[in-house]
Amino acid sequence: MSETQEGKTTEPEVDLPAWSLRRDDPRARALPRSWPHRIDRKWAWSGSDGAGVRVAIVDSGIDGDHELVGGLQRAVAVEKTADGEWKVGDDDAGDLAGHGTACAGIVRSFAPRSELWSVRVLGAGFKGGAGALLTGLRWAIEQGCEVVNLSLSTPKRDTAALLHEIADDAYFGGSVFVASAHNLDVRSYPWRFSSVVSVASHDGEDPYEFLYNPDPPVEFFARGMDIEVAWLDRTRIIAAGNSFATAHMTGICALILGKHPALTPFQLKTVLRETASNMRES
């Protein structure tokens, strides 16, 4: 594109390459600058209870009747049909391990009015592949879940490519994947992708303490050690692991999106960084 002496742009003769933008395209218009200069926790989530935010817990199922969970919006399971297809259907199996209920309870403790969606991908249908995981994640995006809690990872490289595609679709489609980093020194996915919010544990006791990691691939550390969580049969147990740190970040994401529903995943990540406990005034 060339500039005339009057400073006006002239239309080029040729088409722009794919994915480019003409400056007179509506997408080039000025966008409202809605953020204050200082992004702090008060701005980010004060007064929010997560209302209006759909949170999918992609895990072992959820016991919706547990007092710490307090009801589910919907529960589905991904199962393999007789002809080998993965299918999403309503699920009344509850929780097969306890883990999904634990994560749901943590999210609820932050965002009591968020909607919890249980997407069960673990269980009998899971053996032999990651098809259930991929199908469940895709389904959660299609339902418009704004936050997807994923305390799982897979070391399978062929699955990683498919996961990457789904994670990117989520990122651009307005669903935030909050994914557990591996607790061991293992290369697994999707937490290593830049399009997700990846979480590992710190050993502090404050549920609202989370740290931004300037040295990724793990981007955030949240409370993950010695936490009382909901478990099977309406019990509570003490548990530890990055999964639970992840559920803390999911809860905080739900709070922020409850107050600022228009934030894109990329903006949300920035808000998380600005409100991290280890940010200090320059």
Partner: peptide
């Protein structure tokens, strides 16, 4: 398919829990 070891095998993630004896299904 079920239980804590099953979850760990399927999720590929470690897990630590205390007081699982309170959990009849474990």
């Amino acid at each position: 398919a079920t239980g804590i070891a099953g979850w760990v095998a399927q999720s590929g993630q470690p897990l630590v829990v205390e007081d699982v004896a309170n959990d009849p299904r474990f």
